[in-house]
Design a protein around this nucleic acid. Structure first.
Length: 297
DNA sequence: CACGATCCGGCTA
DNA sequence: TAGCCGTATCGTG
């Protein structure tokens, strides 16, 4: 067990509200938590499960504490934190691109440096995206927590609320009846969950591939539509241009702002925001009253 | 393209 | 506790 403390630099500005807010509000009990003003998560790495603790941003860096199984995992652990907190973004370029649209300019001005929350565990994010179809973020969190409790490998050294590793796709494939027992949702969505798990486990969906390839592979699976595929691109692959024109929150925000709110028309308008449409999603979501939009008190 | 089924969990009254 | 909504998807007409 190796403990390391690091500071990860970023290009200011960085708006922490939706970034930390989203990660905290959707934190899955057992594998993630918000504690003492920091986001904490279990990260499956080659040398074994690790724990990352990420505090609120300072002027130009984010404080990180790593507890690793092996020192060799440091680089990968830090890479995942950078991805999760979008620390490699160029906020001046992103903000300038979005603010060129008068419809988005006020949102950018109100929250410069807004980031796109990612994930420390891309494979888990794919499964969570399916669990999040059509249900509230709170309900999605409940479903994921049940999956973790039933199928997540226990940590040798539980740490606060962090007790398990999020189940691997192969774990679901190996125990489909157990998945059906604990995840109470429509039969079609259960089939989708198991189908996605199988596709991940056998390489039909390869998260290391080009985002366009991943998107096509996901859309080919029954029960995976544009929302789920593009959520995966945005959150798990870090595709800055992923867009969710049919998302309930995005549509509602567009309507409030006087933007086109029909998904098709909104997709057309969004082309002007390319290649930073994922940031537009964040700005649009942030116009609503939702738990994901604020760092917990 | 519009619309209903899915059939659950969270939240409100 | 009844009833509606929730950061969807698919099949039908």
């Amino acid at each position: 067990m190796i403990e390391l403390v690091r500071r990860l630099p970023f290009r200011p500005p960085l708006d922490p509200s939706n970034l930390y807010g989203h990660l905290a509000a959707t934190a899955v009990p057992g594998v993630e938590e918000w504690a003492d003003g920091a986001y904490r998560a279990v990260v499956p790495l080659p040398g074994g499960p690790s724990v990352v603790t990420v505090g609120l941003p300072e002027a130009d860096a984010v404080p990180v504490r790593l507890v690793l199984g092996e020192a060799a995992d440091e680089e990968e652990a830090l890479r995942r934190v950078r991805r999760t907190f979008d620390l490699d973004a160029d906020p001046l370029e992103v903000d300038a691109a979005l603010a060129a649209d008068p419809g988005l300019a006020p949102l950018v001005a109100a929250a410069p440096g807004r980031r796109v929350p990612g994930t420390v565990d891309p494979e888990a994010m794919v499964l969570r995206a399916v669990l999040g179809q059509q249900v509230s973020t709170a309900a999605a969190r409940t479903h994921a927590a049940r999956l973790v409790a039933a199928l997540g490998a226990p940590l040798e050294a539980p740490d606060g609320g962090l007790t398990r590793v999020f189940p691997r796709a192969a774990d679901l494939v190996a125990a489909p009846e157990r998945v059906a027992e604990v995840v109470r949702m429509p039969a079609s969505r259960l089939r989708t969950l198991l189908g996605v798990a199988a596709a991940l486990a056998d390489g039909v969906v390869d998260l290391a591939a080009d985002p366009r390839v991943v998107r096509a592979a996901l859309l080919a699976l029954p029960g995976i539509g544009p929302w789920t595929a593009d959520t995966v691109l945005m959150r798990a692959l870090g595709d800055a241009d992923a867009f969710l024109p049919g998302d309930l929150g995005v549509v509602a925000a567009a309507r409030r702002l006087g933007l086109p709110d029909a998904p098709r028309a909104l997709e057309v308008r969004s082309r002007a925001w390319s290649p930073y449409r994922a940031y537009a999603v964040q700005h649009l979501w942030a116009t609503g009253e939702h738990a994901v939009n604020a760092v917990p008190a």
